[in-house]
């Protein structure tokens, strides 16, 4: 599976990441960071849907998203 890590002190809550997620799992959380922005997050329930495509990180203007990917196991493994 893949996952993203949002660096919350850098997120400005612009939500551009939410518009490009192919599986539509990034949302605005209820949490404010120190700068007063409501940060983006992937709710735990949806975490396993992340494909690691890095679209969110690509559009993030604040380099606030890291993307981790686990290579898919080949069939039969």
């Amino acid at each position: 599976m893949s996952r993203i890590v949002v660096q919350e002190d850098r997120c400005k809550g612009c939500l551009l990441c939410t518009t490009v997620c192919p599986v539509d799992i990034i949302v605005q959380s209820d949490r404010f960071n120190a700068s007063g922005y409501k940060v983006a997050e992937v709710p735990e329930a949806d975490a396993d849907k992340c494909t690691g495509c890095a679209s969110c990180a690509t559009i993030c203007p604040d380099v606030a998203i890291k993307v981790y990917k686990t290579p898919k196991k080949k069939k039969g493994e």
């Binding site: 809550g13 922005y37 890095a54 990180a57 604040d62 998203i65 890291k66 981790y68 990917k69």
Partner: peptide, 21 residues
């Protein structure tokens, strides 16, 4: 697990002054 997207080395690790979006 592999880190496939991270801050490039040439970009300093600090918050920018730019507005959201």
């Amino acid at each position: 697990e592999k880190l496939v997207f991270d801050r490039p080395k040439s970009v300093i690790d600090r918050a920018t002054h730019y507005c959201p979006g």
